[in-house]
Design a protein around this nucleic acid. Sequence first.
RNA 1: GCCGCAUUCGUCUAGAGGCCCAGGACACCGCCCUCUCAAGGCGGAGAUCACCGGUUCGAAUCCGGUAUGCGGUACCA
Length: 501
Amino acid sequence: MTVRVRIAPSPTGPLHIGTARTALFNYLFARREGGTFILRMEDTDVARSTIEYEKDILDSLHWLGIDWDEGLEVAGMPAKGPYGPYRQMQRLDRYAAVAQTLLAEDKAYYCYCTQEELAADRMAQQAAHQPPHYVGRCAHLTPEEQRAKKAQGRKPVIRFRVGEGVVAFDDIVRGRVEIDTTALGGDLIIVRSDGTPLYHFSVCVDDVDMAITHVIRGEDHLSNTPKHILLFRALGAEVPQFAHLPLILNPDRTKMSKRKSQTAVADYRAQGFIPEAFVNFLALLGWSSGTEEEIFTLDELAQRFELSSVHSAGAVFDRERLEWLNGQWIRKLSDEELVERCLPFLMHDLEKVRDEGGVVHMPTTEDLRPLVPIIRERLPMLAAIGPLVDFLFVEEVTVEPDMLIPKRWDAAAAADALKAARGVIAKVGEVSFEADELEAPLRALAEERGWKAGDLFMAIRVAVTGRTATPPLFDTLVALGYERSLQRLDAARETLDALAA
RNA sequence: GCCGCAUUCGUCUAGAGGCCCAGGACACCGCCCUCUCAAGGCGGAGAUCACCGGUUCGAAUCCGGUAUGCGGUACCA
């Protein structure tokens, strides 16, 4: 039997970290087993679903490198696979037909209870310290009773008969799980009064229709699994294997939520995390290779992934670790890749400067390429590119006068130092402006005047970049160029002079 | 409340009866490197393996209970 797995997001929000991780594990399992990975859209919650969210989900999955063998149309390509449509709203007829079959077999029935009746039931149960459940008022209505209720204008829902007994299954990550049907809350609604199917029902119908062999999903569905098993049986289908993944948690160990964490994959992308790192990180949330290696490409993960070695305890989303991994992966990028991926982030920052009235030169990949060696190990995220090199592309830097003055100096001393440094730099530049040529004479200057070289360098650094943390000074000066370096030194000295006066 | 699942350094985890008075990684601290920031190297601190009982010559590993946490309990998915 060939493995068929699926991810079934609902477009009621941007792609969530948890959904992405579930998608990843399904994908890895399919790759590893030579199976088929299917993408289906669960869009029956019409009130909350939007096309924008759907687009975000598809884009984000694509960004992560998780592509599907079967399912929704991708980037202009038609839907793939013989089991479509893969969008639940296009399968409504199918659910209705299956519901009718269940009705005909008396595995389900029409329920005419009103919201008020149900609420009253719940209240009474609560008062009696009973678990909330459907009392079965409509479970055995005679045709006359049905007609009477209908005559009152009530729109029925369809409920599935849950029955009695214990449902047991062997979860691939958790082992044997047994749940008594009395814990299920009574006969469950499978079709709303407006005729649309509910999640528990549609998911089973789809899984049967799409011949899903393994249901790999979040632990939050563990308690729902008996309902699904009962439905699979009622449908006369083989029950798939289940694997319930540990939840991804907020730092306070509750289920990861928008309120407490950043949950949208797109947000991480926007901050300059790269997919290689993100996928690597996600894979290590709840799974480990069993070795001490932890840097893996998607392909390497697919080679090693074992569903049975997935953990069962929840995992806190540790952003620091993500950033570390991201840095690791950024350092592995080729020069070309790095330049290409950084450029949009730099442009974004510079556009902001321009919008605020600054004069900027928009960088090209050629501008960035020579900078690679000095930025590569300074980027925990691509978005860190701006503060690192933006001074190269703005007409004028804004310099905090305070930052220009090293701790043991005053304004006059700093002005003096910058003036002297300007002289040295100007002289070097007359011949050739190279990083190697600059260091020695500037150090000599510091020694001659009795300054700490670090103090001198810091004053120059701030004068030229406006920042205290930059790539190495001499590389920075060279990148800036001879003329502009001197100009900025002069400008800084002037502000210092004004301060000293 | 009821049902279910879980519990190894702050975090991610290794560990499937003796190799473990518990290993790795992130974060943290120190040192080295060093013009700042990083990166890198070296070292350190950090877990009575939730607790209590049991099985066993021997338990983080098996069993039972307790506690705590989380999840589920919708005409949401």
